[in-house]
Simulated assay, not measured.
Amino acid sequence: MLVVDDEPLQRDILQTILREEGYDVETASSVDEALQVVKENPPKIILTDLKMPDRSGMELLDEINNMKPHAPPAIIIMTAFGTISSAVEAIKKGAYDYLTKPLDKETVVYKVKQALERQNLLYENLQLKDALYEKFNIQGIVGKSSVMKELINTMKKVAPTNATVLILGESGTGKELVARALHYNSPRRNRPFTAINCASIPENLLESELFGYEPGAFTGATSRKRGLIEATSGGTLFLDEIGDMPLNLQAKLLRVLQDGEVRRLGGKESFKVDIRTVAATHQDLERLVDEGLFRQDLYYRLRVVTLRIPPLRERKEDIPLLTDFFIERFSREYGRELKGM
């Protein structure tokens, strides 16, 4: 962590207190010196005085915010009683907390401990997100065949947009993998990705799962429940096996896509939701439309962008790449070196 204060005695006291608690502590006497430390060895926590001769702790906060670090530090402002309003303003700008002078040792230790716990959770969360982004990176999709290159290029163009996507492919071709890659390479990556299989849930349950319900909507509905569409607002809804969705639910889904609105079962009012819809199926939806089993208007709404994933038999040149990929993956997972097949 980093202690920033223009008074040498104050810096030394804080450094001693925190080192006695087992923390690794660096110090800086000015904002410029602190920024140099932040660039060279980013700290998890910064304790900074608010009032300093050249530049203030508020300016340090602004500078760090402008740097937009991947894992921003928790900044604790130290201030005299008469400038608490400035410390509150700092918290509005993103500071973690403030301490009033004269500093109390127990309070300092407690606040730092709280900040470190928060930072550890933040770092863990960022690591998990980074792992997800790496796992579902479009560049990580295995394939060098012309059909896979075309698919990957289209995904790169579509991922940053809000376009509705229809993924076509046989079972086992990786439709959900593509859907997740679209989500984690989009501006919605930090919002929910919700996958639901329309073929595996009974019709009556599917409706309540998607749209939610109000108390009294049906027998056993004793409380309000948010549906998956509502819970996914801001993120991506993946509807797998969309061809198996019942016709009456297709009409309700169409309204969501057209108007961006959803109404819970038993509810009287509709409300806005912000979702990106990605649907997938192994069926021939055009044939289902001709047979009256799938709504034509919904079909056209879903296929704004269509991605077809070819089966492996149509891209045999990718088999060696996939073999190497899985050998490496399982060698890593099981801690054993596999030479080949």
Score class of each variant (00 low, 15 high):
residue 199 A to N: 07
residue 200 S to F: 06
residue 200 S to E: 11
residue 201 I to P: 06
residue 205 L to E: 10
residue 206 L to W: 03
residue 206 L to V: 01
residue 208 S to Y: 11
residue 208 S to E: 13
residue 211 F to G: 02
residue 211 F to M: 12
residue 215 P to H: 01
residue 215 P to R: 08
residue 220 G to C: 10
residue 220 G to S: 10
residue 221 A to L: 04
residue 221 A to H: 00
residue 221 A to C: 08
residue 222 T to D: 14
residue 223 S to A: 14
residue 224 R to Q: 14
residue 226 R to S: 13
residue 227 G to Y: 02
residue 227 G to I: 01
residue 228 L to S: 05
residue 230 E to D: 09
residue 230 E to I: 06
residue 230 E to Q: 13
residue 230 E to S: 10
residue 231 A to G: 07
residue 233 S to D: 02
residue 235 G to N: 05
residue 235 G to Y: 05
residue 237 L to M: 15
residue 238 F to W: 02
residue 239 L to F: 04
residue 241 E to K: 02
residue 241 E to C: 03
residue 243 G to N: 01
residue 250 Q to E: 07
residue 251 A to L: 15
residue 252 K to A: 09
residue 252 K to V: 06
residue 252 K to T: 05
residue 253 L to D: 10
residue 254 L to I: 04
residue 254 L to R: 11
residue 255 R to A: 01
residue 255 R to N: 08
residue 258 Q to S: 04
residue 260 G to Q: 06
residue 261 E to S: 00
residue 262 V to K: 05
residue 262 V to M: 08
residue 263 R to G: 02
residue 263 R to N: 08
residue 265 L to C: 13
residue 265 L to I: 14
residue 265 L to F: 03
residue 266 G to R: 00
residue 268 K to M: 14
residue 269 E to C: 05
residue 269 E to G: 04
residue 269 E to Q: 14
residue 271 F to A: 01
residue 274 D to Y: 06
residue 277 T to N: 05
residue 278 V to E: 02
residue 281 T to K: 07
residue 281 T to R: 11
residue 281 T to G: 11
residue 284 D to L: 09
residue 285 L to C: 07
residue 287 R to T: 15
residue 288 L to P: 11
residue 289 V to N: 04
residue 292 G to T: 12
residue 294 F to M: 10
residue 294 F to Q: 07
residue 294 F to Y: 08
residue 295 R to P: 14
residue 297 D to I: 13
residue 298 L to Y: 02
residue 298 L to G: 09
residue 298 L to W: 02
residue 299 Y to Q: 04
residue 301 R to P: 14
residue 303 R to T: 14
residue 304 V to M: 14
residue 305 V to I: 15
residue 305 V to Q: 12
residue 307 L to T: 12
residue 309 I to W: 06
residue 311 P to V: 07
residue 313 R to F: 06
residue 313 R to Y: 06
residue 313 R to S: 10
residue 314 E to H: 13
residue 314 E to Y: 03
residue 315 R to Y: 08
residue 316 K to H: 12
residue 316 K to W: 09
residue 316 K to L: 15
residue 317 E to T: 15
residue 320 P to M: 05
residue 321 L to D: 09
residue 323 T to E: 07
residue 324 D to P: 10
residue 325 F to V: 12
residue 326 F to G: 08
residue 328 E to N: 15
residue 329 R to E: 10
residue 330 F to V: 13
residue 330 F to S: 03
residue 330 F to E: 10
residue 331 S to F: 13
residue 332 R to Q: 14
residue 333 E to T: 11
residue 335 G to S: 00
residue 336 R to C: 12
residue 337 E to Q: 13
residue 340 G to K: 15
residue 341 M to V: 14
